[in-house]
């Protein structure tokens, strides 16, 4: 396995994530798409960490941090989505246009 294959995989995942963020109506799905992007990043880090045989395991470590952070973000995101759902009975983010001028 060369490093390139990991990179292609991660790039593909990242792109799928972006696509999801851009076109999904449901906020939960948008959240998941972001998670997908972060997963792509993790792949990158782990692959590079392994590739460099980084003595400090920097890549792997970074991936761990990202996983943690992602978890926190999802928590926050879901909280916000819930809030909106409570107020509007909808989790579709394209209906948010109060602030549109």
């Amino acid at each position: 396995m060369t490093i390139a294959q990991f990179l292609v995989l991660s790039a593909a995942l990242f792109s799928i994530g972006i696509y999801g963020v851009l076109v999904r109506r449901n906020a939960v799905l948008v959240l998941l798409s972001v998670e997908l992007m972060l997963a792509a990043v993790n792949i990158n880090f782990v692959a590079f960490g392994r590739y460099f045989a980084d003595a400090t395991a920097g890549g792997q470590m970074f991936a761990l941090f990202i996983i943690t952070v992602a978890a926190a973000e999802v928590g926050i995101g879901l909280a916000i989505v819930l809030l909106i759902f409570r107020n509007r009975a909808s989790a579709n983010i394209d209906e948010l246009d109060v602030l549109k001028w």
């Binding site: 906020a27 959240l31 972060l38 973000e73 995101g77 809030l83 909106i84 948010l96 602030l99």
Partner: peptide, 17 residues
Amino acid sequence: NEAALKFFVIGVLSAAI
């Protein structure tokens, strides 16, 4: 709410980037 969600979505997207 809307402010938070917009901030959040763009925030995490940019963080991912």
